[in-house]
Structure formats: structure tokens, C-alpha cells
Design a protein around this nucleic acid. Structure first.
Lengths: 143, 143
DNA sequence: CTGGATGCAAACTCTTTGCACGGAG
DNA sequence: CTCCGTGCAAAGAGTTTGCATCCAG
């Protein structure tokens, strides 16, 4: 396995157990925000059975290692995605729940600069999530 | 009580109980996102004791009546705020947890338009929340 | 009076923790 | 061998629900 994450953990001397490798693999092969529940479902599909405590602990571990980033959308459960180099945002389809990423380079900087000066606010991060209907669901007939 | 919300509910024939009026009053006099827990704390400060079930049911009721809007920030608990006429965003201070509102008129429309065309995405709503340090906390000495 | 609103207890979802055991290095 | 990682059970936070009772209109 030539995963960057796996190599990082190996270098740091952490063990590579079946659970850890399986969970990392899920995030690496599904490049989108996934909930703990969804990770568990995928594991079961792959006939890998991991205790929920282990799953949550493993996800926490990967967050602490700065390999996963927690994402709280407008829903109950938290999701996680691989830590990306580029800051990006999400398009959430309210019909099929698919989540697409999108990047906007400098477009939003004006807004952030304005806020900084208007409110004298020192920005450290921002969330921009867009909700609506994705292209595929627009085509589909109403159910 | 000349509250718009109270009048709306009265018109629709809903009862105006002590609990209902107290909860509405809290949202009207604190114009910011508040969690159920915080509502409860304020009620207790005012020596008004309401069962948690009632509190959650009442909040749900106000959401269904389209008078309160649920807000999920990057935290565990949901918050609620009065439904505003103007779309607005939040500045969340990571030191004192204060939440300020801010409005941006057309600045963000370019971004939304671009996303719509690039991804053929039909936008119905968007969230823009900014995290950082508010002006007051920047002045305060480090603890 | 009467049905919408309430309190209580219990359940439910998602997540965390303590502890003893197990397996990767 | 040694601990890091695991499973199990139990607890914890936040929220919801069923049911009998209450009270605003």
C-alpha cells in the first residue's frame, strides 16, 4: 500500500492494524465527507467488522494526526474528510445528498477582507457550503 | 405584549402559554443564535421552570411555524435564531464564543453565479460562517 | 368544556470512556 | 515481549416520544 497517510503513520511509529488500514482506505478511495456511520456501513459491505468504539477512536486519532478534518454540515452527525492542501467548499444536493467539492480562488477574499475591516475581526477560518439540487437530480423526473 | 410573533400565533389560533411566551421573548430580546440548553439557562435565571421536553417541542413548533431557523455551527448542539428578512452570516469568536451577524449584499453573488454555471447546480441556500477572534478578544491580554 | 400544551419517565441517537484482553512490531 | 490498539459494556450528551394530566380560550 503506497498511501501517503499510511507512510506518514509508519514513519511516526504507529501500528498499521487491519482496522486502521481499512478506515484510511475508505477515506482515500471516497474523496468526500463521510460520517462514522457511513464508514461503518462500507466496512460491513467489505466484510470487515470493527467495534464502534474502535471506529470513533480511530477517526479521532486521524483527526489528531491532522489527516482527517471534521465537517459539520446542517445535519445531526459529523462528517470527516481527508485534509486537503487546498481550501475548498461543498455543494450539497438536497435530493440525493451527494456532496461535491468546489474551489474558489480569490473570489471570496474581497468578502473576507471587508469583514475583517468592518468588524475588526481576525479571521482564522471560514465555512461556505451551498445547498440545492445537483445537475443529475435536476434532470430526473419528479418522484 | 406587541410581539409580531405572538400576534402571528394568536391569529392562527395557537395558545399563548407561559412557556411559549417566555421562549419567544428570549429569542426576541437576544437577537443571535441560541441553543436549547441556553434557552433553558435563561429561563432558569428568570425563575421560569419548563420541562426539557416542552422546551424542545416548543422550539420545534416555532421552527415548523417558520418563526425560528435552525443553525448548525461547527459544534455539537444545534442553535436557533429568529427568521430574518435579510439573509445574513455569522462571525464566530473562538475565544469568547460570541456570535455577530453580518450582511453582504451582492459581493457573494458572483461566487454563487459561477458555481451555478460551473457545476450546473441549482442553489436554494448557502451558509457562510467565519471563525476567528472578535475585536474585543484581540484587545484582551493573553490569559 | 375541549383540544392543544405540559410534565414525567423512558427511549433513542450519536459519541465517549474504563477496563481487560489481544496482536503488531 | 511490550504496549498500542481492540472489543465489550456502560455511561454520557442531546434530543424525541408515549401517555396521562392540565389549562388557555
Amino acid at each position: 500500500m503506497q498511501s501517503i497517510i499510511v507512510n506518514k503513520l509508519k514513519t511516526k511509529g504507529y501500528r498499521l492494524t487491519v482496522a486502521r488500514k481499512a478506515i484510511i482506505n475508505i477515506f482515500e478511495s471516497n474523496n468526500k465527507p463521510i460520517s462514522a456511520e457511513q464508514v461503518n456501513d462500507i466496512l460491513i459491505e467489505d466484510s470487515i467488522y470493527i467495534n464502534k468504539s474502535t471506529l470513533y477512536r480511530e477517526i479521532d486519532f486521524l483527526v489528531i494526526q491532522n489527516l482527517l478534518k471534521p465537517i459539520q454540515l446542517q445535519e445531526k452527525t459529523k462528517r470527516y474528510e481527508l485534509v486537503h492542501l487546498h481550501h475548498h467548499h461543498h455543494l450539497i444536493c438536497q435530493k440525493c445528498n451527494k456532496i461535491e467539492d468546489f474551489e474558489i480562488k480569490n473570489c471570496i477574499d474581497d468578502v473576507l477582507t471587508k469583514v475583517t475591516s468592518d468588524h475588526n475581526f481576525l479571521i482564522s477560518d471560514h465555512i461556505l457550503d451551498i445547498y440545492g439540487i445537483c445537475s443529475q437530480c435536476q434532470i430526473k423526473k419528479e418522484v
